[in-house]
Nucleic acid binder design. Structure first.
Lengths: 189, 189
DNA sequence: GTAATTTATTGACATTTGTCAAATTTCAGC
DNA sequence: GCTGAAATTTGACAAATGTCAATAAATTAC
């Protein structure tokens, strides 16, 4: 249950088993079916999740019901409605499990406590933040510099697994294009 | 010279004057003219900057010479070619002062040392990262959910100062649209 | 202050992408 | 394995935005 999480910690932090256990005990396990909603827009996001298996999708919905995927979170990664969880304010985004998913979760209060009490954890979390931030910078770059075809090609090169694994329309709104456009550029080349 | 930087620290960290001074002494001051290049694409970004006055622009250039602004950094904020500085790998972006600018700078090695040695600084930096990451998430959202008009309107509401202060074409490529399109939506309404 | 350069605006047109609708295919759930 | 729902593809058309070119306005550098 905690294997992946411990691996995540061990990568950037030297800690003995007892500390790792103390850390992990703050997390609970949640198993979801496909397409379960874990958070609705308007609510304050209480939890940050660490995905053991499956996939979480952070997405928004506009007034016409059109959805846009902000992030996709797969095995071995932390994910949450980040602005809401971090600032404890109402979320603009929904969280949904688009596959049957097993995830660990911890509430905001306990999470902050870990940052205060587990030596080295603030560093690990900071490095994880840097990584996520870099990924989001690259995403911004692709959105302002590339057209739909280039963005799709890039996604195929960097994370082909995602494309195989997820339905077309999720990929499309992750790329910021319509389902039909994606379908057309797939058939072209 | 260090006033703004000390304010930045003091916001999230209790430290006596001696510690603040030790911290600040690692930074050097750079004054630039308008349109000076501080980093070219291809180089590893050695510094992170803290802007005292003026404005730095982090931007990319494609093979046709078309520019896209990744970030704009104004007074009281840290800025750098983040992926390059953090991972110490060649930068895809340029850094330019689009106004006469006064900025403090520190190299990667010293910066890491501060994270190790100044109590509380890793926390302050982590919180700053969260803030920047949240800003980038909101930018991604606006890019995947809004059209040009909506994005411009949002920018007018959130940072009208930027629009007044910077040339049109910088605003346009920050928004990911052409200069002409921006000019047209300004005249419309 | 003036010339030279850069920046902004405008028009005409091309291209990309979106929208709506219908037909087809795939797949989840029993 | 069936069956119904969901996802995908395709066509026709509309809307948004980009590109190129010319002109006008603003600003910098001297």
């Amino acid at each position: 249950m905690y294997t992946l999480l411990k691996q995540f910690l061990a990568k950037n932090m030297a800690a003995d088993e007892a500390v790792l256990d103390a850390f992990c005990q703050k997390f609970r396990l949640k198993k979801t079916k496909r397409n379960e909603i874990l958070l609705s827009a308007g609510d304050v996001c209480p939890y940050i999740y660490f995905v053991n298996s499956g996939c979480l999708r952070i997405y928004m919905m506009d007034v016409n019901g059109k959805e846009s995927t902000r992030f996709l979170v797969t095995e071995g990664r932390f994910g949450t409605a980040f602005p809401s969880f971090t600032l404890q304010e109402p979320s603009l985004a929904y969280i949904q499990s688009i596959e049957p998913t097993e995830a660990l979760y911890i509430n905001s209060h306990d999470f902050r406590e870990l940052l205060d009490t587990i030596p080295g954890w603030e560093r690990v979390y900071r490095i994880n933040l840097e990584r996520d931030y870099i990924a989001s910078i690259k995403r911004i770059e692709s959105l302002i510099t590339m057209d739909a075809t280039q963005r799709y090609k890039q996604l195929m090169e960097t994370t082909p697994t995602l494309i195989q694994r997820l339905p077309n329309k999720i990929i499309a709104d992750y790329l910021g294009i319509s389902q039909e456009t994606l379908s057309r550029l797939k058939s072209k080349k």
